[in-house]
Nucleic acid binder design. Sequence first.
DNA 1: CGTCTATTTGAATGTACTCAAAAGCGGTGG
DNA 2: CCACCGCTTTTGAGTACATTCAAATAGACG
Lengths: 170, 170
Amino acid sequence: MDLFFKYLKQKKYNKKEFLLEQDSICNFKCFIITGLVRAFVIDEKGKENIIHFGIENWWVSNMESFILEKPSHLFIQALEDTTVLLITKENLELAYVNIPKLERVFRIITENMLIAIERKNEYYIKMGSKERYTSFISELKTFSQRVPQYMIASYLQITPEYLSELRKNK
Amino acid sequence: MDLFFKYLKQKKYNKKEFLLEQDSICNFKCFIITGLVRAFVIDEKGKENIIHFGIENWWVSNMESFILEKPSHLFIQALEDTTVLLITKENLELAYVNIPKLERVFRIITENMLIAIERKNEYYIKMGSKERYTSFISELKTFSQRVPQYMIASYLQITPEYLSELRKNK
DNA sequence: CGTCTATTTGAATGTACTCAAAAGCGGTGG
DNA sequence: CCACCGCTTTTGAGTACATTCAAATAGACG
């Protein structure tokens, strides 16, 4: 652990600041110590679509951009003042070499990210938008109070107007 | 590589045979040598929803079930006669210990799975069902000839009837 | 208190679905 | 080789769910 920390850099982002912008190459992974971020893409109509949120104790990055070193399609933005431990791609590669055990650690972290995504997908496939909302709220109610409605709507892939509708008939 | 092969077992599944059924625990990963499989979930209405296909040179498994050793929500079924190299969870853990380099290999495989899923999600979020179909076909046309329309519809999250409609107005 | 942002409301519209039925297609056996 | 059966795809009418747009209302913050 001590060894690993040498490769990390603490960094602070203010609310609304971008950790990553579209078209730039994501050369880092961030571990969120405190704060909250959102990752979103912009579609052809200019609408922002939130892919996921990142909260305390999660790693955030754009894996595709990070690994393939290609321009990112997504934005990552702090929704609160956010403190992270950042590791660059360069440093991570070094760390893998010098701390072989780290391979296992990040294999497991990656597996857990994958599980989280698959679970979300399953939800979206199995449920209609009403159940999606209620189960989202019941599972994440503490966290859902930290983001505005319209962002929850975006995450649930519905319009804010329709979410408002759903909330009424709950 | 030779070392690793000792942990693998070749296995054949006939068309329509299940590699994994709902409620059983997925204790394997399979590398597809030849053939084609589909992974799907059944929703409350009894409808099959295809999450992804697995083709030659891909690993298939249900990561959530495999890693957390919990009952699977999904089915994995051969759509053609399919030959795989199978590794059990047990053997994989042994292999990790005896071939430390394998940690790196599976970290990278997992990362690539994650990228594939994220890319699919991005497609679904950014595009309407029409563009989803056309881009699916153009990217995967060789492969799309190996599966019936109604399964493509299921994968695209639309009804076969509606897909038929889309094809007409293309 | 005023301004800016977020949420709600409602009407009109559109996208995709359901259900039922017809048409197409492929394989099998007579 | 053709006729039939089962499965897949197409067609069409009616419907439901979710969106758009515009405007009103509510909340947050300096």
